[in-house]
């Protein structure tokens, strides 16, 4: 309740500050300023942990800043304050060592539990292998014989060139769109294996609360189970050279039926392509 109201206040002040401060008038209906709650059980837990820690900090901040502001107002020399002379108090020093310590121990409990859950990639329903390249992603559906590259969408790529005279608003999801999104089913535990072909990259989709580095020569694992069908966007999150800012990630979560249909289409396309290649080879051989 309070939390909601505070958020409203915060948002309106911010937008106001934004508009006056930077002098831009475009109204941002859905200005995002917080971590998304996301679309998986894990992402929601991460969000709660984040908010819990945030409120702990706000509370402690209110105490500390409150005491400081009180001193600044109350104990001004100009208002005739006379200095006291105390400079030690073991009891209070022990208290303000012990209380923060206790708070931190309490905070680690949910954090540790969550970490353990996120770490457990066993009993997954399917596995997708991700390989980072400078500057695109490769996806390999390990037991489906489906694999493809996924790179920044053409229109974004044209618009992001130095001095390009393209209206960015006319570009579909500028910088956050790819040619081949990675398609996954909802409700399934999907295990991802991630590695890199050159330098370190990092695969991050904040709606899923997953981020894992792609290390050349090693395979890292992580998992997600998406609840809601939809399109979720992310970006490479480890500096990987010139076009690090231009290798987005798009995850398309579909219902199991739609996903199966998509898989079929992929297989069909692949079969057709093989046939064509074989045909061409035959023709060449003749």
């Amino acid at each position: 309740m309070i939390c909601m109201r505070m958020r409203g206040v915060m948002e309106s002040t911010l937008v106001a500050a934004a508009m006056t401060g930077a002098g831009i008038g475009s109204a941002h209906a859905g200005l995002r300023y917080n971590m998304p709650e996301g679309v998986s059980e894990i992402s929601r837990s991460v969000y709660s942990l984040h908010m819990a820690m945030f409120w702990v900090c706000v509370a402690i901040g209110a105490l500390v800043f409150g005491a400081m502001i009180y001193s600044i107002v109350r104990f001004r020399k100009s208002a005739g304050a006379q200095p006291a002379n105390f400079h030690e108090n073991t009891a209070i020093e022990l208290i303000w060592t012990a209380i923060p310590f206790a708070i931190l121990v309490i905070m680690t409990i949910p954090a540790a539990g969550l970490l353990i859950k996120m770490d457990d990639t066993s009993q997954s329903d399917m596995t997708i292998k991700i390989t980072g390249y400078q500057w695109k992603w490769h996806y390999d559906y390990l037991d489906q014989d489906v694999s493809f590259f996924s790179a920044l969408a053409q229109d974004s790529n044209a618009a992001r060139q130095l001095g390009a005279q393209i209206d960015l608003k006319s570009v579909d999801h500028y910088l956050l769109n790819v040619d081949h999104p990675v398609v996954v089913p909802v409700g399934k535990k999907i295990r991802f294996l991630i590695t890199s072909n050159d330098v370190i990259h990092s695969w991050w989709v904040s709606d899923l609360a997953v981020k894992k580095d792609a290390i050349p020569g090693f395979i890292n694992e992580f998992w997600t189970r998406i609840d809601v069908p939809g399109i979720y966007r992310g970006q490479c999150a480890e500096l990987c050279g010139r076009d690090h800012g231009f290798m987005p990630i798009v995850v398309e979560a579909k219902t199991p039926e739609d996903y199966a249909a998509w898989l079929d289409a992929q297989h069909a396309a692949k079969a057709q392509q093989t046939a064509m290649v074989n045909g061409a080879a035959l023709a060449a051989a003749r």
């Binding site: 500390v64 005491a67 400081m68 001193s71 600044i72 104990f75 001004r76 020399k77 100009s78 304050a81 006379q82 200095p83 006291a84 105390f86 400079h87 108090n89 209070i92 020093e93 303000w96 060592t97 923060p100 310590f101 931190l104």
Partner: peptide
């Protein structure tokens, strides 16, 4: 955060009942 907190609290306590100028 614990030792750092001690420092912040100590600074605050130094100001407490002082005679402050800015």
């Amino acid at each position: 955060a614990v030792p750092t907190g001690v420092k912040v609290f100590n600074w605050t306590a130094t100001m407490w009942r002082g005679s402050l100028s800015f």
